[in-house]
Structures are given as structure tokens and as C-alpha cells.
Amino acid sequence: MAEDIEKQYDKIYRYCYFKVKNASVAEDLTQETFLKFLQQNSYRECGKKMEYLYTIARNLCIDSLRTRKELPLEEEVAGKSPMENVELNLSVRQALSMLKEEEQELLLFRYVNDMPVGKIAEFTNQSRFAVYRKTKEALGKLKKQ
């Protein structure tokens, strides 16, 4: 259970950070997401806990972006990677920044947070085919750059 919640925390934190681009705000929002989830009693266990958490996190991120527009963007450097990967990481980062936010979000869900296509489709309110096509397109763009 502890391990599960740790993984969930990391995924939500990564998502919040992607949305608000600020580590301390992302951390606050992540913790608020979990507190909100545990306080409410409307969730019925049906295997969709992560989608529920993502929905709370997304709404909190939107609220936060609306009220705190003046937050500075944090530019972090890939310091932890081995030297041979730094170049690749920087180029991937650069290429990712050229993609639309929706495409970035799809790549985050699919390849970083390991969310199945069906669940991404449900969460983003699109068809599975659309998610699959858009993810493929985003990857294609990434490879070109």
C-alpha cells in the first residue's frame, strides 16, 4: 500500500509539475490532491483511482494557474544524467518544448506515467484511436527534431 501510494504520488507530482512548471507549487498541488481524495467519500473502488486523482490534480492545476499567473518558470538542468546522455536529454527536452501542450501531455501519460491508451482516452475524453494517432504523431515530430 505504502509503495502504491508512493508511485501514485510520483505520477501526480510529475503531472502537476508538467502543468504548473514550478516544483514547490507542484508539490503543494500534489499533496492537496491526495488530501482532497482522502477527505471525500464519493469515490467507489472500481479500479479508476488514478484517473480520479488525475482529475482532481488537473482541476487544482487549472485553479492554481488561474489565480497565480505571475509565478516564474523554473528552468531545470538535467544534472543527474550520465554525460553521454546529456546531449540526448537536452535535445529531447528541446524537441518536446516544440510540441503542443496536448501532445506533451499524451507523451507524459503514455511513456512516463505508463497509462494505458484506453485510460488516457477516457481521461482526455477522446477515442482510443484519436489518442493512438496523436501519440504516434507526437512521437514522429519528436523523432524528426
Binding site: A2, I5, E6, Y9, Y13, R14, Y17, F18, A23, A26, E27, T30, Q31, F34, E74, E76, A78, S81, N85, L88, N89, S91, V92, R93, L96, L107, L108, Y111, V112, L142
Partner: peptide, 19 residues
Amino acid sequence: NGIREAFEPPKSPGKEAFL
């Protein structure tokens, strides 16, 4: 791995205490 690294956020300092 490049995509994973690119999306990796800075460490969350309050994570341990919160959990």
C-alpha cells in the same frame, strides 16, 4: 528514456514527511 528524463521533475522535498 530521453522522454522520461525530460519529464522528470526536481525532487519533492516534502514527499517523505507527507507520506
